[in-house]
């Protein structure tokens, strides 16, 4: 077990349940309510008997009352395809606490919860230069693979999230997609959400920002260099500039939030100074 994922952390997340209140479709049975009617004990609906139906599922009480044959339908529980996209560009390896640390813990926690709930998990570490992924994992025994991937991931280059998602193996099945990123990236977030919605995904946006990004503390004069592109800006830090930065940040967050809202996606601002458990509760509660 590494420093990134200590035993205490893992035991805490085991207690959390990923309950997203959606139904999924698929062939493998799981812990999710499905639109398919199957063999579970949970009653779903009635319908008239048609030729070929299983006699055992005829509700004779209903026949007694209505003199018509009705068949009982039960909810079939199925697995949910959960896809987690973790931005591993250079900008995510920045801040104190480091965004890479917090975001990987969040990804690990969400992965563990998905595997614990018998969901089919895919984890994608997306970057333009060094992408890696694990797809279609089931069961908690696969969690060590997740940890292994997250511990060895390299943060480098820039990220086009939409492109990264397009290159993934997402199918047109209902599922859950979680994107963990600072969204200082190329590609429109709106287009990304639309793309995922097209593939019938419930989208969760974990907008990861460090305290230094939320409230910068710079010297009176400095040259800020973009760690991804190397581009820079000379700043004479003043109250006016900090105020303008705060205004730009607020607009950035609010724009993300409104884009998500308009596409029925969930948005969570992930301040890396907060505990991951708190964020997970926010995600689950979202």
């Amino acid at each position: 077990m590494s420093e990134l994922f200590d035993p205490g952390f893992l035991s805490r997340i085991q207690k959390l349940v990923l309950s997203m209140g959606i139904t999924v479709s698929g062939s493998m049975s799981g812990n999710r309510k499905s639109r398919s009617k199957g063999m579970s004990v949970e009653f779903s609906d009635f319908r008239e008997y048609t030729e070929g139906d299983d006699f055992r599922r005829i509700d004779w009480n209903a026949y007694g009352r209505f003199e018509k044959l009705f068949v009982k339908l039960f909810m079939e529980e199925k697995e949910a395809p959960v896809s987690i996209f973790l931005d591993t560009s250079s900008s995510m390896n920045w801040g104190m606490p480091n965004k890479s640390y917090s975001s990987r813990r969040l990804a690990a926690a969400l992965s563990f919860m998905a595997l614990s709930n018998y969901d089919r998990l895919s984890l994608y570490c997306i970057t333009d230069c060094n992408a890696s992924s694990l797809v279609s994992l089931r069961g908690t025994h696969a969690f060590h693979s997740i940890l292994n991937l997250l511990e060895n991931v390299k943060y480098d280059g820039t990220t086009d999230i939409k492109k990264g998602i397009e290159n993934s193996s997402i199918k047109a099945n209902r599922g859950i997609t979680i994107i963990i990123s600072d969204f200082f990236s190329t590609g429109s977030v709106m287009d990304t959400i639309k793309y995922l919605k097209y593939y019938k995904q419930d989208v969760y946006i974990c907008h990861t920002l460090s305290p230094q990004e939320l409230s910068p503390d710079l010297n009176s004069g400095c040259r800020v260099v973009d760690c991804e592109t190397g581009r820079y800006k000379d700043l004479v830090v003043s109250k006016e500039l900090l105020k303008a930065y705060g205004k730009a940040l607020k607009y950035f967050v609010e724009k993300m939030e409104s884009d998500c809202f308009s596409q029925s996606a969930s948005y969570v601002l992930f301040d890396t100074s907060f505990d991951v458990e708190q964020i997970i509760k926010k995600v689950v509660g979202a």
Partner: peptide, 25 residues
């Protein structure tokens, strides 16, 4: 001329650019 500044690495200059545009500096 603008003075030579000490370099500071940031995750992105996107928000700073927006801020500078705001105050036209």
């Amino acid at each position: 001329l603008k003075q030579r500044f000490e370099e500071t690495s940031v995750s992105s200059i996107y928000l700073w650019q927006q801020a500078l545009n705001n105050i036209e500096a």
